[in-house]
Computed example of a mutant assay.
Amino acid sequence: MFNRRQFIQAGGMALAAGQGLGCAGASAQSGQLPITVSSYLLDRTQALFDGSVAIGGTDAEFVQGAIGDMNTAAFTGTGRNEISELGLHPFMLAHANEGFRDYALLPVFLLRQFRHKSVFVRTGAGIQTPQDLAGKRIGTAGYSSTSLTWIRGIFEEEYGLRPQNVEWVISNADSSAAVAGAASAQESQIPADIIVTQGKPGLDESELLLSGEVDALFHAATPAAFVDGDTRIARLFPDFRSVEQAYFEKTGVFPIMHVLAIRRDTAAEHPWLAKAVFDAYAEAKFKAYRTKDRLTWATDMLPWYSQELDNTRLLMGRNFYPYGIEPNRTTLETLFRYSHEQGLADRLLTVEETFLPESLEFTEVTQP
C-alpha cells in the first residue's frame, strides 16, 4: 500500500493506473484522509516534509510554495489545499474588507521576525534615527504586507513617525520575488490619507535607493544591493539585535508574519483534523528545538550558534516560538490594531472571529 508521499514519488497516476488503484482508492482502503498542505520548508516544518512526523489520520502531501502565491491562491478561490500557510495581514484584509471566509486560521505561527532590521537607508542621506525619516521618501515593494504594517505601527508607536509624515514610493519590481512570489492584491492596498507615488519602471526597491529616488527602504527581505555589499545602503539600526531585544523586553511582542490556515468546509466535515494538524506542527517544531540543542555543531555553520540559542532562551523562554492563542494574543491584537489605525482593515478584527473557534483552546502538550 502506498501512502501519498510514496505515491507521488513513484510516479503518481501512472503508477496508480498500473496498480489499478488511484489516490482516492488508496486512501479509502487505508482509512487515511488525503489532504494537501502548502507551506515553506523550514526547520520547524522539516519533520513534516520528510515524514518523520505525521498528521494523525491523514495521508498528507506537503507542497512547497511562495507566500505571495499561496495568498493569491487562497483568496481567489483557486487554491484547494486543505491546509495552507498564509500571510497574517493579507488574511486579515481579505477577512475584514472582502468577506473572505474560505479559510480560518489555526494558532500555528510559522514565521516570525522582529522588524527593526528591515529598515534600510541611503548612506549620506542624513538619516540616523527614525525621526529623521519625516519628510523623506520611503521605497517599498508592498505597502500592506504584514512586515510593512508591523514596521509602520512600531515606528508610530515607539518613535512618533506616522505614515502620513513621509512619501511612499512603490517599486515596480521586487528583488525578493523569487522567494516571496508575486505580491497578492491584499499586499498592495493603499489607504487614502497618505502620499504615494510609483517608482521608475523596471527598478526594484534597492535600485530605487541606489539611484537616489528614495531615501530609505522598508522591506521584509534584505535588499539585493545590501546582500551584495553595496556601501551605499546601510541599516538604520546597525545593532538591530539590541534594539529588537529591548523592544521585546518592553512590549512582549514577537511579530508574527505567517500563520497556518485550514479550509472551513474541510474543518466542518472532519472536526478532528484541526487538532491533529496543530499537534503535528507542534511536534515538528519541538523536534527542531531538539536538533538545535544537540546537533547545532553539525547542522549550522555559525560558530557561536549555541550561545545565541542560549541567549535567546534566557530572554524569551525555552519555547521562544510558541503556538496557541494565549501566548500570542498580545502580538495578534497589536497587529489587528495597527491595521485598523493605518486605514487598511475596515474595522478592528478580533482573534475570535479570525481563528477556527475550536482552535482557540489548542495548547502545546510537548515542552522543549
Rank of each mutant, 00 (worst) to 15 (best):
K200Y: 10
A177M: 13
G135L: 12
G142M: 05
P223S: 01
I138E: 04
A192T: 13
R235C: 08
T197W: 06
A180R: 03
I154T: 11
K250W: 02
P191V: 09
E249P: 00
A234F: 02
S184D: 15
A185N: 11
T197V: 12
A173P: 07
A192H: 12
G199M: 09
A221P: 01
N172C: 08
W150E: 12
I138T: 03
I262V: 14
E207K: 01
E213W: 03
T251L: 06
D215N: 13
V196I: 14
D204R: 02
S184A: 12
E167S: 14
G229F: 01
A185M: 14
G139H: 06
F237Q: 04
A180H: 00
Q186P: 04
R264D: 12
D193L: 09
G199F: 11
E207S: 02
K200C: 08
E157V: 00
D174A: 13
P255M: 10
T231W: 00
I138W: 04
V166R: 05
L210C: 09
E156P: 01
G229T: 02
F226Q: 04
V169H: 02
R263Q: 15
V253M: 06
K200W: 08
V196D: 08
G153R: 07
A225C: 07
L148S: 12
A185V: 15
G229E: 05
A224H: 11
S211P: 03
D174H: 15
V253N: 09
T146V: 08
E244L: 05
L260R: 02
V259S: 02
A224G: 14
